[in-house]
Each structure stands twice: as C-alpha cells, then as structure tokens.
Design a protein around this nucleic acid. Structure first.
Length: 257
DNA sequence: ATGGCTGCTTTGAGCAGA
C-alpha cells in the first residue's frame, strides 16, 4: 500500500500536476493540503476519471484539505474534536475496508512569526491535535498522520540551522509539540530509513531556493507504532518541484506491506 | 539587503505563505 502527502498550494492551479503525478505514481492514498477551494469547486469529476474518490474539507482562499483514494473512504471526520476552528485543516478517513488504515490528513498552522497571534494559535492547535490524536490512536491502532506540519523537527531538517534558530517552523515549542506526537506512539516514517543528507520538502519560491537546495523538511508522515514493522520505504519526490509553475512543496511517500 | 515569489482577493495593492 502506497500513501502520500502533498501541499499543492492551490488545487485549481496545480490540478494538472496532481493528475500527472497520480498517473505516474499510482498511490493508493494521496493527502492534499492548501486546496484553497470551497467544496463546490473541488474537482471530483476529474479525479474520478483518474480513478480516485475524494473527500474534502474546503474553504475559500486559505487552507482546505482532501484525501484521495482508489478504494472506498469510510468514517470521514473533519477537524479536531472539541476544538472549534473555522479553518479547514484536518480531515480523516478509513481506507481499505475492515482491515484498513486510519488516515489523518492535516495542514498545521504556519504561525507566521513567533511574536504573532498566529503563533499562539499554532501552539493551541498543536496541543489540541495531540489531545485528540491520543484518543484517535486508542480507537484506531493502524493510524497514519500525513501532512504539512509546518515544523522542521531537527536541525538536520533545515538548510541553515543558524539562520533559522528560534524562528517559526524551528522554534523549541514547535519541536516539543512534534516530539509530543511521537511520544503518543508514532514514528517519523522518513527517519526509519537511511536518507540522503539535506533532504527537504519545501523551498521558498524566491532567491532560486530550490536550485540551491535551500529548503526545510516540514511535510511528514507519522506512523502508529503498530504500522512500523509494515513500513518498507519512505521518500520525498522532488520531480514535481522541477516543473513549470510548481507547488513550493514536494510530495512525501510511504510504502506499507 | 527585511526583499527576493506565488496565489488569492469584490482587479489591484495587500495579505499570507514558510
């Protein structure tokens, strides 16, 4: 089973890239973030023609998350339970029937800068996510959390750790929140394997950052402990970042036996 | 060098992203 996550930075603009990528990779599941679409504008028809069902928690202009799957998507939930939030950042579904996995697709807040109200919202959101996932892991032992975490967990996930030290995406409270997710009983799938040095999933559009590999690893796939023995591979696919008019994020993939 | 791109917005300068 192949699952992936990709922040597409507007599905309206990126739909051709998504369709090409689905055709090339044929993942069983693809989680999308930043669709920036209302549900009524979501391209269900085009995706169905490509062989994918979809569920979407949409919103105009900002945020918006979706799960695409070749098989049925069951028990769909939107948002974090007991956390009132108009921003559409979380959608979850069970894929693969009775023996299926629970897929949680999330677009974590960016936080803007550590002195911003948005940063305080990010920390509250992270705390609410942890509390909710603790319950969800008890309910669904075969859970995966995939998405744009907007957190670079360690200095090796940052092209210039000195410049980013203490900044939003790298600050210690954010990294603590990331580690807290691991202590709930999850593993960073990417770090289960040997990986190339300077592996990143996001590069700024400016200053030729991609060409210089000035990036951050902020898109992640966490696996519940019980899934770890089934994990065969995890990688970042940089091919879409090289295309014309790319998303600033690259997809991350995981393979489960 | 505090910008540099990109996408979006009651269309055009400003916000947000990361």
């Amino acid at each position: 089973m192949k699952l992936a996550t990709w922040n597409v930075n507007s599905l309206r603009v990126r739909l051709p890239h998504v369709l090409d990528w689905l055709a090339a990779q044929r993942p069983d599941v693809l989680c999308l973030q930043e669709t920036k679409l209302e549900d009524i504008a979501f391209p269900f028809v085009e995706l169905e023609a490509a062989g994918y069902r979809a569920v979407h928690a949409g919103q105009r202009t900002y945020n918006g998350v979706a799960i695409l799957a070749r098989d049925e998507l069951a028990d769909v939930t939107r948002g974090i339970a007991d956390f009132d939030d108009p921003q559409q950042r979380v959608i979850a579904a069970t894929v693969g029937g009775v023996s299926g996995v629970r897929v949680v697709c999330a677009y974590f807040p960016n936080g803007q800068s550590i002195d911003s109200d948005k940063y305080q919202y990010k920390l509250k959101w992270l705390a609410a996510l942890s509390a909710w996932l603790k319950q969800e892991l008890a309910r669904h032992p075969d859970l995966l959390l995939l998405g744009d975490f907007n957190v670079a967990p360690e200095d090796r996930d940052v092209h210039d750790p000195a410049a980013w030290k203490g900044q939003v995406l790298c600050s210690e409270p954010e990294r603590e929140a990331f580690r807290r997710l691991l202590t709930l009983g999850m593993a960073d799938a990417f770090r289960l394997f040997e990986q190339p040095e300077k592996s990143y999933t996001w590069w700024d559009y400016r200053m030729m950052a991609y060409r210089r590999n000035n990036g951050l690893r902020i898109d992640h796939i966490l696996l519940a402990s019980g899934l770890v023995p089934r994990c065969r591979a995890c990688s970042i696919d940089c091919a879409p970042r090289k295309l014309e008019r790319p998303s600033d994020h690259a997809p991350v993939l995981v393979e489960l036996a």
